[in-house]
Design a protein around this nucleic acid. Sequence first.
DNA 1: AAAAAAC
Length: 530
Amino acid sequence: MSSDTTTAQEALTFADLGLSPKVLSAVTDAGYTQPTPIQAGAIPHALLGKDVLGIAQTGTGKTASFVLPMLTRLEKGRARARMPRTLILEPTRELAAQVEENFVKYGKNHKLNIALLIGGVSFDEQDKKLERGADVLIATPGRLLDHRERGKLLLNGVEILVIDEADRMLDMGFIPDIERICEMIPFTRQTLFFSATMPPEITKLTEKFLHAPVRVEVSKAASAATNIIQRLVKSGSKPWDKRETLRNLMKAEDAELKNAIIFCNRKVEVSELFRSLLKYDFDAGALHGDMDQRARMQMLANFRDGKLRYLVASDVAARGLDIPDVSHVFNYDVPIHAEDYVHRIGRTGRAGRSGKSFTIATKTDTKYIDAIERLIGTKIEWHDGDLSTVVASEGEDDAPRRGKGAPRRAGRKDDDRKDRGERKRGGEHRAGRSEEVAPAVVAQRHEQPDVAEAAVAENGERRARKDAIRSDNTERKSSDRNEQRAPERGDTRPQRDNSRPARQRHQEDNDATVGFGDDMPAFMRIVAKV
DNA sequence: AAAAAAC
């Protein structure tokens, strides 16, 4: 198999690439004139119908490098029922939705049927779109195969196949699914294949499924590292120590901080930290893979739109998500795999902007930090003295374990001071707590230009927050799925959580009469729960 | 020590 190498061209415009007038005008309307290197390298070949192997990370303009030529090529011909003309495979639901947005944006002059097949949402609408004939099908592997097994989908009309984030698919164990899907599609198709790295398994895959591909490699944005200020922040290792370290950091950075993603290693930590931050009046949302899909979408949309300033997330948000202009990344946990560190901090400093990342480190993290420093090839500076200066948090909790060392729930007697106080006093009013909030955080809440709009925005936000919390409940009790699942499905409205003791619900009802009604902020609703 | 993805 031969493959020629195309290097990045200099200073071309989109008009030079051979895109159709309809596509060009949408690109121009979006405000772009100059293609990125991956776009300049891939688009002309993709337009000629050649297979492309694109080696590029997200943030390099990779998505448009397949969306734009696909739109141009789709102008000829039309879709038949259940036989999509193109298929784009993505590793996560959010990425799939993001690609759909790109097709909508750049395809605004086209009349295309776009279908998004992802899990966690109902089949009905997806079925309808397939039945109508999809020009563009964007999918995560599981749901795609599900539709196919149900006989709702024929893949033998696919003219263009895109496999995006292949190395991540590999990490996630999707490669067998990808192979199956590739084998369902006629080999006369065009294949556009993208991966940030080329491990041997991925190379093997490209040898099997690509025909004489043009290889377009974009040098790793080495500059990405230089426009991101990276710091390590020492902390005690207990959850409340780390939460306090984080809060102090957030307050210290407040003036410079536009918005931030806070990464945790585990989903439960995302939930716990999220709840804790809400109690401290931080304007936070949460995102992890066990939340229901509507809440995931809502949180992400609100964070993107600036309605949420902080997003606590698992690594579902580490790669690929295009959230322009995130000013800060906080690693609440040091990532276990060094590559994840690179992906996480890459959420800031996008498009040549500057960014800041802080990684909270405890004594048990040193070997992971070593691995990260080896990978990125530099030492990361300590923000405020290294771990040798950490004062261990003493007290009740370093005392001998109660029980058999069973994991303690956050928010019990070992939780931080504020959490304790709230648990005792329950319906504490806002004025009391606001003292501890950084002034800018408070100010931001009152600077909404349009009151009605703000109310709507906050409404959606609270609902998503409530969903996030409720989905955590359903997650823990997945055994009684029958009862929990059914109403959750199509219902878009928050439901009363009957899983809590009546006493607690009563308490909430009392709180509701104080004046928040059904839209009482989530941080008040959950006071008794943590 | 994890996360993600179908039901």
